[in-house]
Structure formats: structure tokens, C-alpha cells
Design a protein around this nucleic acid. Structure first.
Lengths: 112, 112
DNA sequence: TCTATTACCTATTAACTCTAGGTATAATGC
DNA sequence: GCATTATACCTAGAGTTAATAGGTAATAGA
């Protein structure tokens, strides 16, 4: 039974990639910097993390690509498809649900 | 370079185990049910997840054990050591930091 | 007596992340 | 002119964790 993300955890790189690309299309290298910047250096995923995420999201139809050469360097711009928007909404809901469940447990005064 | 938890993610089972055991000692089977109950059935980690977590926490000195036979069935009660309390505080701080970073990014109006 | 529940456990598989590379062009410093 | 850094892409392999799928044994209940 292959689950898209592990039942509860992980999927944070994917969530952030979809979130940032929802604002505007970006190429991989740009995204890596954008995540670092958006998180005030709290989070930093290396290229070796981001590129595979981009490829698998594209394979799943969540992202579409456009190739462009700028200053002699080839860039691959990614943008979010309708499928990708759905995927993001699902991931976000999932994350928020998990987060609030954990917060509740952690803050509970005492567990019988 | 072996990291205790992956740099950012995971560690949720461990966090919950330490949190619940901080309230009172429990045995493994009981913990599995307690997590499910505390989360209102939103989270459920199978025994195959919880037992290995307990064993590795014990190996690390975060939990101590006490064996007792009740109704002919042998139980292993776990309780949190001072090391375990530190570990929990670290994990919690880590989790909350991650969570708030992600929340900020997700809610941001627009990313340049 | 047969099944479900309690209570423990491990091994294998799967998933994801992280590190560590590797290629190539352009820009910068010396 | 040459070396280094920055830009921009990529993949393979390792490491960690979680999920599944078993397996043992005793008790309780139907």
C-alpha cells in the first residue's frame, strides 16, 4: 500500500515548494534560496533535496515546466497546476491537523 | 554524520511517548492506546512503531524500566529519566520552532 | 473449545531526507 | 590570461524513520 507521504509526517519540503511556487513560478536554484529567505535562515533544504521533489511533483502533474536560457544558463521554471493547488491544500490541511493534534496533547494538563 | 533525529522532521512518535510518560509510567501496550485516546483517534501508531521507540529511548537512558506481572501477563513499565525530560524539552522546542516557521511561511501574503 | 484480547517482540519494506558528489557556463579577482 | 566563485542543473548512495507484517504466549469470554 504505497502512501503518497508517510501517513503522518514529512512532506515539509513539498509543502514549502508548492507554497512558494503558488505565488510565482521559479526555477530550482531560485527556490532553494527562496525557502531559506522565507524562513529567515531557519530552514534550508539543499539542492539535492529540492530537485528530486520538483521532479516527482512534475511527474505527478502537480507542476508544469518551462525552459528558458538566461545569460547562457539554462533554467527550468516550475509553476503550480490545478492538480498542484489541490495537492497543496491537502498537504496544508493535513499538516495543520497534525500540528493542532500534537499541540493539544502536549499542552494537556494531565493524561489519565 | 549520524543525527539523532533527521535534521528537521519526524520524531513525532518519540515526542508523544515522552510526553505521555512524563505524566505517569505506562507499559507499551497501554501507551499505544493512550496515544490514540489522547489524540481522539486522530493519531495511531502501531505497536511495531512504539516498541522500537521505547527500546531506543531506553538504550539512550531517556527511559527506565520496571517489570511486573499482572494477571499472568508480563508488563514492562517505562518512566522518564532526567535525561528523558531534557530530551523531551529539546524535541518540543524543536517541533514548536519548526511549526511556527512553517506557519509563518504558509500564511505570508506574498513571497518576493 | 475457539476466538478475541492482552502483552510482548523483531524483521522487512518503504519513504524520505541528507550528503556528496558531478557537469557546465558566467562572472569576478588577481 | 587564469583561477576561483557563483549560477544552474542533476543523480547516486547512505542514513534515519516509520509502516507493515509477521510471530509468541497467556487470559478472558463466547
Amino acid at each position: 500500500m504505497p502512501t503518497t507521504t508517510s501517513q503522518f509526517l514529512n512532506g515539509v519540503p513539498e509543502l514549502l515548494v508548492l507554497r512558494l511556487l503558488r505565488d510565482k513560478e521559479m526555477y530550482g536554484y531560485e527556490l532553494v534560496e527562496a525557502i531559506r529567505a522565507a524562513s529567515n535562515d531557519n530552514l534550508s533544504f539543499a539542492e539535492g533535496v529540492i530537485y528530486p521533489v520538483l521532479h516527482s511533483l512534475e511527474r505527478d502533474g502537480a507542476l508544469s515546466t518551462r525552459r528558458q536560457t538566461v545569460n547562457g544558463r539554462s533554467r527550468v521554471y516550475y509553476s503550480v497546476t490545478p492538480t498542484g493547488k489541490d495537492r497543496f491544500n491537502d498537504l496544508l490541511a493535513h499538516w495543520q491537523h497534525l500540528q493542532s493534534t500534537i499541540a493539544t496533547i502536549v499542552k494537556a494538563p494531565h493524561h489519565a
